[in-house]
């Protein structure tokens, strides 16, 4: 086989590159529908890449061609599996995207919780506070001997936290 020695045709390699590049670009979008399209393109690019890994040639059916002239059947089998899997995942992603649109009116991937919290705090110009587990005065009815009463300013009714 000479074609195996010279490697896969340039057009196919370029097609892999273009498909994957478009797929990645679309993945970076915020709308789930575009991400879905990105996944489809990326999946096709990767499948083509796997096909290129095998030896090209005649159909791998015993008796139709000499064994040496047959193409490598294994990548084709792998691609079939990969196509089925990508198909399933795509269907699920479509369902998620539809459900998201149904519930919220759009299918955008929102910022994560931490980001939103930080943005909210920055807008209000407040410091992050955490509950450090202290108890307010008289917070513990079972404590028989509370410490000396703390001095409080008027208006600071809530006590230290």
């Amino acid at each position: 086989m000479t074609s195996a020695d010279v490697g896969p045709p340039l057009a196919l390699v370029l097609a892999v590159g273009v498909l994957v590049a478009c797929g990645v670009t679309l993945l970076l979008e915020r709308s789930l529908t575009r991400i879905l399209l990105g996944v489809i393109l990326l999946g096709n690019g990767v499948n083509l890449l796997i096909l290129l890994g095998g030896r090209p040639g005649a159909a791998p059916v015993v008796g139709t061609a000499p064994t040496a002239a047959m193409s490598d059947a294994l990548p084709q089998a792998m691609v079939l599996t990969a196509i089925v899997i990508t198909f399933g995942l795509t269907a699920f992603l479509l369902a998620v995207s539809y459900r998201s649109w149904y519930l919220t009116g759009d299918d955008e991937v929102p910022d994560d919780i931490e980001d939103r919290q930080i943005v909210r705090q920055a807008e209000r110009n407040e410091v992050a506070t955490a509950d450090l587990g202290g108890e307010g005065p008289d917070g513990d009815p079972e404590q028989v001997d509370p410490g000396p009463a703390r001095r409080r300013r008027a208006g600071d009714a809530d006590g230290p936290r």
Partner: peptide
């Protein structure tokens, strides 16, 4: 989305290893 992306990376690696 993150899981699918990692699967795609794995699949690319498989294709190249083969």
């Amino acid at each position: 989305v993150v899981s699918i992306l990692s699967s795609m990376t794995f699949l690319i690696a498989l294709g190249l290893v083969y």
